[in-house]
Simulated assay, not measured.
Amino acid sequence: MKTMDHKSSVRERVWAELLKVAVPDSRFHFDFGSFIADFDGGEAAIARLTAHPHYRNAETIFIAPDNCVERLRKQALDDGKTVLMTTYSIKRGFWVLDPARIAPEMRLFASTLDGMERMGRPVDLADIRQMKPVDFLVTGTGAINHEGVRFGKGHGFFDAEWGMLHALGRVQADTPVAAVVHDCQVLEEILYPDVFDTVADVVFTPTRTIEIALPHKPTCNILWDRLDPHMFDTIPPLQELKAMGL
């Protein structure tokens, strides 16, 4: 079976189970190809994550713009951590949420996709290059196995974000990555990662914390000859990275 056919098959099977526990999105309803859903038990999964040393030891965290980690963005701000994230729009760019600049009563709003653009500040890659390194990255995903191999919506956004941050020297091969998922998204089977796929170090579900023994982290930065031209055309940071010669 071809890799793309395999990934599509896995996604469709997991999405059928996720439909039973997912929280719909007002923009996309249950179109799991358009967003990463929150789910029943999401609070417990985040509680497991925030108790983990990767989170406790982090000062700067990249948190994907996924519904299942919205409450994590709020908690990170309350805990005094700097949050780096991307917007959810087609013109995907980076934003920083600084807890020192966001009043406590506004942090819930700031943690949402609409609020972050009002309460945070946009940053380009030159700004990110001057920031402290990212200590921890957190994402939702579509499916994941016990080796930390994850399949998202199929767009490759998180892997591109890792590639850009790696090219800038803000993450390294040992920078931990976490995935937050429902138990039904964890598979007992082999998944086949590509060279640019970012494997998780740890998986948090409502009932389990799954530590990955040998997570694979891409060190290839952005593979320009394999990048979807549509991604390049619609994601300004990729255009900026290319102009930087990285």
Results as ranks from 00 to 15, higher is better:
S26E: 11
A103F: 12
R27C: 00
A16E: 15
D38V: 09
D98G: 01
I61R: 13
A100N: 14
A103T: 02
Y88K: 12
R27M: 08
D114N: 10
S34E: 08
L113I: 13
A51E: 15
V21C: 10
T60A: 10
A37N: 03
L49M: 04
I61Y: 05
I46T: 05
S111N: 11
D40A: 10
L18W: 00
T50E: 02
F94T: 02
A110F: 07
D114Y: 05
S89C: 08
T60G: 04
K91L: 14
D98I: 00
L97F: 11
I102V: 02
V14D: 03
F39R: 14
R121G: 05
P24R: 02
P122S: 13
K81N: 09
V83N: 11
L72C: 09
S26F: 08
G120S: 05
E43M: 09
K74E: 15
V123Q: 10
M85L: 15
Y88L: 08
G80C: 06
M116P: 02
V83Q: 03
A16M: 08
D66E: 06
L97M: 11
D40I: 06
V96C: 10
A44Q: 13
A76W: 04
F35S: 00
F35W: 09
A58V: 09
R101D: 11
R92A: 01
R101E: 13
Y55P: 07
A76P: 09
I61T: 04
S89M: 12
D25N: 14
L72E: 04
A103G: 05
I90V: 14
V83E: 07
E59H: 08
E117T: 04
A58C: 06
F39G: 01
F109K: 14
Y88Q: 12
R101Q: 06
L108K: 12
V14Q: 01
K91R: 13
A64H: 04
H52A: 02
F35Q: 03
A37L: 06
A44I: 01
S26V: 13
E105F: 10
D31F: 02
K91Y: 06
R73C: 13
P122N: 08
T82M: 12
T112H: 09
K91M: 14
L18R: 11
P122K: 12
I36R: 13
A22T: 12
K91W: 10
G120E: 00
I36P: 01
T82P: 03
R101L: 06
I63W: 07
P104H: 00
L97S: 08
G93Y: 07
I46N: 09
P24Y: 03
F109D: 03
A51D: 15
C68Y: 05
G93E: 15
K91T: 13
L108M: 08
P65T: 08
T60K: 07
A100T: 13
P104Y: 00
R48T: 06
T50W: 00
A47N: 15
L97H: 09
V83S: 05
R118M: 14
I46G: 09
